[in-house]
């Protein structure tokens, strides 16, 4: 059974088109029908450009805000956004790591105490010495020297801070870890250290992870499966090696080809024209069609569904797999 199951969730916000008081209200579809599941011990990567809804999806998964429709099941239990006793118990098993470690840490508290704090909040370990012991073992697990236990966040480097955040997330022995751009704020040499660490703790603690990033190269390093989002929907999903080597959806193809890589200088880059459309004003049919170099007439009217292509891969495009056959017929 999947540890986490997300069933057709949506998140809509009502926004005013302009700053005027009586302006027409419209709906911003941040997440527009997303489904996926994560088996125990597996990692799913969510990738896409800013505004595609990947972070909103993470918030819904953690029950940090109510979904407009659909539901999220964690170990068979529905996650609601009502902050009651049950929500707190569930939250013990799902933890998160964000992009900016300095913003996630309390600047006036020694980092060691911040790793102890979750144990206090959830009443997990009795006795100060036992809690300290446990926090110290986590320090060791994330590669932090115990001499840093009494330091304050500003005394640590960016990489060390992110290790503290990770230790704090792991101290409750969660079964799901949600990481939102965990290495984006770090320099290349430090980024590699943290990426390796994430792989290690995943194996060591048998974690399931939802890993969100705009950096496809990092995602490929960490995840078992990857889902590409565009304007609130998953448009392609599959095992990372196959998906990045041979993207099926034209958007994924453009995304992959746009990544500058030092070892490959001159190559055929697909440069998309225009910006991603405003999520308030999603185009009819396939949301990607105005920028798609391969769009056909049908793309302007019918939104393609995410469907199985084979070999564990899914894509939402009229020109791919079974969909393409139907178009041709």
């Amino acid at each position: 059974m999947a540890l986490l199951k997300v069933e057709d969730i949506t998140k809509h916000y009502v926004v005013r088109q302009t700053a005027r008081l009586f302006a027409r209200k419209s709906i911003l579809r941040a997440v527009d029908g997303v489904s996926f599941s994560i088996p125990r011990g597996h990692t799913l990567g969510l990738v896409g450009e800013s505004g595609c809804g990947k972070s909103t999806t993470a918030q819904l998964v953690l029950g940090l805000g109510p979904a407009t429709s659909g539901r999220v099941l964690f170990a068979g239990e529905t996650i609601s956004a009502v902050r009651d006793e049950r929500w707190r118990t569930l939250r013990r098993h799902m933890q998160m790591v964000y992009q900016d470690p300095l913003g996630a840490l309390d600047r006036r508290m020694p980092v060691g105490e911040q790793v102890v704090e979750p144990l206090l909040i959830h009443g997990v370990e009795k006795g100060a010495a036992a809690r300290r012991e446990r926090a110290l073992s986590l320090f060791e697990a994330v590669g932090l020297g115990t001499e840093l236990f009494k330091r304050y966040p500003h005394e640590l480097s960016g990489g060390q801070r992110q290790r503290v955040v990770l230790a704090r997330a792991l101290v409750l022995e969660p079964s799901l870890l949600v990481c939102d751009e965990p290495v984006s704020a770090l320099d290349v040499s430090i980024q590699a250290q943290v990426v390796n660490l994430l792989q290690d703790v995943k194996a060591r603690f048998d974690l399931s992870m939802l890993f969100i990033s705009h950096d496809l190269k990092v995602v490929r390093q960490v995840v078992d499966e990857v889902a590409v989002m565009y304007l609130g929907r998953i448009i392609e999903q599959g095992p990372p090696d196959a998906l990045f080597r041979q993207p099926l959806h034209p958007y994924t193809a453009a995304l992959v080809s746009a990544i500058p890589t030092p070892r490959r200088r001159m190559r055929d880059r697909i440069v998309l024209s225009g910006d991603p459309p405003n999520p308030v004003d999603v185009p009819m049919g396939c949301a990607f069609h105005p920028r798609c170099p391969r769009a056909i007439a049908r793309c302007r009217t019918d939104a393609p569904a995410l469907s199985f292509i084979g070999q564990g891969r899914l894509a939402a495009c009229h020109l791919v797999g079974g969909n393409a056959a139907r178009v041709a017929a």
Binding site: S157, Q191, A192, R220
Partner: peptide, 20 residues
């Protein structure tokens, strides 16, 4: 070496130890 590659076979990154 610390830079992940999208196309080469997936392997563990070789991180530079320590900090600036």
């Amino acid at each position: 070496a610390a830079l992940p590659d999208l196309e080469a076979p997936s392997q563990r990154l070789i991180a530079i130890p320590g900090t600036v």
